[in-house]
Amino acid sequence: MSIDANGDVTIQGASLRSLPKVSLHDHLDGAVRPSTIIELADAIGLALPETNPKSLGQWFATKSDSGSLVEYLKTFDVTTAVMQTTEGLTRVAREFVQDLADDGVIYGEVRWAPEQHLTRGLSLEQAVEAVQQGIEEGEDAADRAGRSIRVGQLLSAMRHTDRSREIAELAVDFRGRGVVGFDIAGPEDGFPASDHRAAFDLLAENFFPVTVHAGEAAGPDSIRSALIDGRALRLGHGVRIAEDLQVITQEGDEVQVQFGDLARWVRDREIPLELSPSSNLQTGAITAWGNTLADHPFDLLYQLGFAVTVNVDNRTMSATSLTRELANLVATFEYDLDDLETFQFNAAAGAFLPVEEREELVEMIAEGFDV
């Protein structure tokens, strides 16, 4: 792996940024450009902790590196505050899509919680429409720049509030109009998926895809609830599934592991893990194994055959991109292009798209990695 004068990472002769990628776990309110935050805040008279884009970006990164999901989530008070109008939501969504395209993403799913964007008079429906307008504008802009990208919305309900069934109904209503799936987000520990069984029942009755934040701030019991109560097709993070694995022996690269029933189910059913390495470090999700990327169970899960995917979670808070996350994994675990291609295949297989469209993604990835 090498880095050129422009900061582009090259692996085996291929530009890492140019390789086709799939992003499954990317929060809209965690991906607002600092410069945009400053402009939108000025328009509504909102005071910010920093008024220089570079300094504000550093503020987010510092505040987010707390080792606590609860503390990490507090930084979103700033970003959501400037996303309360049609103009704000549309602009943020448009720039989000453009930033993904610049990162080499060909398909992305953006998750956000409409219930958090109503303080200036928008209805839930108006908020979803505003984001969809921005997504379509971003897709058009990317197309004009010679980059093909498609982005679908994942509507998140906040797990510590009582609007999950309402948001589930909203998601189903917008099926075919930009919304491709449902999620629950927010503080995980103490707020299991079982609290939202009515919402998940509605979604199941309508055969509507679900991913659930689980296995980040809470352990295997949270994952179990996501699968049983939430009928989750993917696990948001899911990194703590590794707590259901017992390493028996380890000699060099050879590891003998005993699977718990939950871990075996997730592995054998190929339930995608939406792993976000930098974010997992910042929120303390991997403290059971250590506090560096080398300690992250990503490689263990990959070597054991779990359907691992690579994600950014929150680009602004983690000062990252999908290219950067992949580069860090290459530097840490010595992955090659075949490994990176596998991560993208896993993500394409887990995308909330019809099988024909997932197969098209796989073909695009294979062609792009044929260097």
Rank of each mutant, 00 (worst) to 15 (best):
V310I: 00
L337R: 06
F306K: 02
N311Y: 04
F306G: 02
A307D: 12
V308P: 00
Y335S: 13
V330Q: 10
T320L: 05
V308K: 02
S321H: 09
Q303S: 13
T309F: 04
T316I: 00
F306V: 10
L337P: 03
D313E: 09
D339C: 13
N314M: 03
D338I: 11
L337F: 06
D339S: 13
M317D: 11
F333W: 14
L340M: 08
L329R: 00
N328V: 02
T316D: 07
T332Y: 04
S318T: 07
T320C: 07
D338R: 11
L326E: 00
D313T: 10
S318Y: 01
L326I: 06
T316V: 04
T320S: 14
A307I: 01
T323E: 03
L337Q: 05
D339I: 06
V330T: 12
Q303R: 15
F306S: 02
D336S: 13
F333V: 10
F306E: 00
E325T: 06
R315W: 06
M317P: 01
L322T: 13
N311F: 07
E325K: 09
L326G: 02
N311Q: 08
D336E: 15
A307Y: 02
Q303H: 15
L337G: 07
G305W: 01
A307G: 03
E325V: 08
E325G: 13
L337K: 07
G305N: 08
L329S: 06
A327Q: 15
S318I: 00
S321M: 04
N328Y: 01
R324N: 12
L322R: 06
F306M: 07
R324Y: 05
L322V: 08
F333D: 06
D339V: 15
E334M: 11
L329K: 04
N328W: 01
L340V: 09
V312G: 03
V308R: 01
T316G: 09
D338Q: 13
V308T: 09
L340Y: 12
S318A: 15
V330S: 12
L326F: 03
E325P: 10
N328H: 10
T309M: 04
F333K: 09
V312H: 01
D338A: 15
L304Y: 05
A319W: 04
D313I: 11
L329G: 06
R324A: 03
N314Y: 05
Q303K: 15
A327H: 11
Q303E: 15
T309H: 00
V330F: 11
R324H: 14
D336W: 08
T309Q: 04
Y335K: 11
R315D: 05
T309R: 01
V308C: 14
A327S: 15
N311T: 10
E325Y: 10
T332L: 04
G305S: 09
F333L: 13
G305P: 04
